[in-house]
C-alpha cells in the first residue's frame, strides 16, 4: 500500500518560493492504477519523484507498505527504490552504450537479486527478441520505451511510476505500453501514470488532476 500524507514541496527560484506540492495526501492500494493529469509546472513530476524516493518533501511522509521512505538514509532508500519502485519516463533514459538486454538487466548493478531468466522473459514479453543485442540508438521510440518498461519491471516492483510514457510513441506502441501498465496493475501492482493524454488516462482506474500542487 502507498500512503502519501500531507506532503508539501517548495522550490526556491531566486527570491521567489514556489510551492510544487501543497499539503497533498493520497492513498493507493495494491492493484490500483491512477492517472494524474495536470498542466506543465503543476507539480506532477515533483509528486512522482517524491513518491519515488528521489525528492525529499519539505513536509509530510510517504509510506510504502508502512515504511516511511524518507526515514531511510540515502543508501537504504536507493536499495528500497531498486527493489520496490519502477520508473518509466517519456525520454526513456536508456544507457546509450548498453544493448537492450543489458539495459533491462541494469538494475542488477544497484541490487544483486536472483532473477533467473527474467531478462529473457521480459525481452520475449515486450517483443524485443530481435533487438536484444542492439544499442538504444538503433531502436525505434516504441522499442526504447518497451525496453525502459522491461527494465522497470525487472524486480517485480510494488509501484510503477510512469511519467508521460506515451508522449513520444505512436498509437500502436502507446497501446502496448499502456496495456503493460494495466497488466502490472491487474497483477497487484500500483501504477501512477502522469500524462496529458486523455486516452492514456482512460486506461487508469481513476484519473486525478493536479493544479498548483493540489490534487483533486
Amino acid at each position: 500500500m502507498l500512503k502519501v500524507e500531507n506532503i508539501t514541496k517548495f522550490y526556491q527560484k531566486g527570491s521567489t518560493k514556489i510551492t510544487a506540492i501543497n499539503d497533498l495526501s493520497l492513498t493507493l492500494n495494491k492493484g490500483e492504477f491512477i492517472a494524474i493529469k495536470g498542466e506543465s509546472g503543476s507539480g506532477k513530476t515533483s509528486l512522482l519523484h517524491t513518491i519515488g524516493g528521489l525528492l525529499r518533501p519539505d513536509e509530510g511522509t510517504i509510506l510504502i507498505n508502512k515504511h516511511d521512505v524518507y526515514s531511510l538514509n540515502k543508501n537504504e532508500r536507493a536499495a528500497f527504490r531498486a527493489e520496490q519502485i519502477g520508473f518509466v519516463f517519456q525520454q526513456f533514459h536508456l544507457i546509450p552504450y548498453l544493448t537492450v538486454s543489458e539495459n533491462i538487466a541494469a538494475p542488477l548493478i544497484a541490487k544483486k537479486l536472483k532473477i533467473g531468466s527474467r531478462v529473457d522473459e521480459l525481452i520475449e514479453k515486450f517483443g524485443l527478441s530481435e533487438r536484444k543485442n542492439h544499442l538504444p540508438k538503433e531502436l525505434s521510440a516504441g522499442e526504447k520505451q518497451r525496453t525502459a518498461l522491461a527494465r522497470a519491471l525487472l524486480f517485480n516492483p510494488q509501484i510503477l511510476l510512469a511519467d508521460e510514457v506515451t508522449g513520444n510513441l505512436d498509437p500502436g506502441n502507446s497501446e502496448l505500453v499502456l496495456d503493460s501498465l494495466r497488466e502490472f496493475s491487474d497483477n497487484g501492482g500500483i501504477v501512477i501514470l502522469v500524462t496529458h493524454d486523455e486516452s492514456a488516462a482512460s486506461k487508469a482506474d481513476k484519473t486525478m488532476t493536479i493544479s498548483n500542487g493540489i490534487l483533486s
Partner: peptide, 16 residues
C-alpha cells in the same frame, strides 16, 4: 549526466 541520473533513479548507490 543522464546515465548517472538513471542509474541513481533505479537504485544505484552513490558509492557504486
Amino acid at each position: 549526466q543522464d546515465e548517472i541520473g538513471i542509474l541513481r533513479t533505479i537504485g544505484t548507490k552513490q558509492h557504486t
